[in-house]
Simulated assay, not measured.
Amino acid sequence: MSYKLKQESISSFSTATAANICTEFFAGKNKISGESIMSLTDVRQVNSFIIEALFTQWQAEMARLRSPYFNYEAEEVQIALKEFMNTLSNHISIGRGHLEPLLSKAIEATILLTFAPKKFLLSYWLDMNRENLPKGKLRYIKTHTEGFKLIFETAKTPINPAYLGNLFDSMSSHFEIPEPIEFLQKLKAENKLDLLFEKEVVIEPAPAPIQTPEIEETPEVINTVATKHENGKETINDRFNGNTTAPTLAEKLQKSNRQPLEKTLTLNERIMFTKTLFEGNQELMTKVLEELDTANSIDEALAKTQPYNKKWDIEGDEMDAFIQVLKRRFN
């Protein structure tokens, strides 16, 4: 069974889903922090688009800081402003009234990007009215990353819809559309499948009958097959039908969650976190991870990073990867 996205329903679905997510999050809470936004939903792309919206707002506010008396373009001023931004990002505090519309727009953009990436690409370029595709946008794209990176790096000016559409078509093999139900489950909105998608019934022509000579099975072969099953040995059919004692992915994750955080890190994660988040201090990283092991939830773990995350870039790939490690541990 295949599904077709109902593009006319994206906005209403996003509004309703954002309201449900906010109702659950703000039960007993008045504000949401930057750390909590990074793990607000299980769809990484949604969280990333909220961060992008906040950064865009920051840029708009900074653009108003212009004066005939001071040089805001000076290198030292730009460095100070960046440090100010990093400090400010650790003090994000948003109420439901301001978060909900941002979340709704993030869900809407994520759906289009995920299930209609070509339309997302064309809409983004037309909305921005740009002469080229800004590579800075890539840091916020967490879905179809490889495909969009190829397009952004390959696109040449002048850009127009026909050229961009043809470029996408030439790289469409890098865009694999996920199953809708899996996506909706991450948003706790699987009951809205029929609102957002319609089923497409593909009728395939019946294959022509193939005439094959009948082969009589000898008693020896029958006995051999029966003997294998009687002895309880696994056949190839058994393996493909799932009759195996191998642990499931859920069982592996559950077992992994009982391990200390540091032991769950891959080699690449260990190197990346030590170098970028902990300034090359392996002992400091071990200390922080041991503190996070005492947390009972991902929000509590993120709160425990406060004394150490003053220079962390919440928009960076390292922070995204760190959030994913915490999700493996606490979800």
Rank of each mutant, 00 (worst) to 15 (best):
Y3D: 11
K4E: 10
K6L: 10
A19F: 06
C22R: 04
K29N: 15
I32F: 02
G34V: 08
G34S: 13
I37R: 08
S39R: 06
S39P: 01
L40G: 05
T41L: 09
D42R: 05
V46H: 05
N47T: 07
N47M: 08
I50Y: 03
F55E: 07
Q57M: 15
A60P: 01
E61M: 13
M62S: 05
S67D: 08
P68F: 00
F70P: 02
F70H: 05
E73V: 04
L81F: 07
E83A: 04
E83Y: 02
M85W: 11
N86F: 03
N90S: 13
S93Q: 15
L102S: 14
L103P: 12
I111N: 14
L113P: 08
L113M: 15
F120K: 14
W125Y: 07
D127W: 02
M128R: 11
M128H: 06
E131T: 12
L138S: 05
T143M: 13
H144S: 01
G147N: 03
I151P: 01
T154G: 06
T154L: 11
K156A: 13
I159C: 00
I159G: 00
P161E: 02
A162W: 05
G165R: 02
L167E: 08
S170M: 02
S172T: 04
S172K: 15
S173Q: 08
H174E: 14
F175V: 09
P180G: 10
P180L: 08
P180M: 10
E182Y: 03
E182N: 09
F183R: 12
L187T: 10
A189F: 10
A189E: 10
E190T: 03
N191P: 00
L193H: 10
L195W: 02
V202E: 15
I210K: 15
P213L: 12
E217Y: 02
T218V: 08
P219Q: 14
E220R: 14
N223G: 14
T224D: 01
T227N: 13
N231H: 05
G232I: 04
K233R: 11
R239T: 07
N241M: 06
N243W: 05
N243L: 15
T245R: 04
T245N: 11
A246V: 09
T248C: 11
A250V: 13
Q254F: 07
N268L: 14
I271P: 00
M272I: 06
F278E: 07
F278Y: 12
G280P: 13
N281M: 08
E290R: 15
E290W: 02
E291S: 13
L292K: 08
A301L: 01
L302E: 07
L302I: 13
P307K: 12
N309Y: 00
K311H: 14
D313T: 05
E318P: 05
D320F: 12
F322T: 09
F322G: 09
I323Q: 09
I323Y: 03
R328C: 03
R328A: 12
F330W: 08
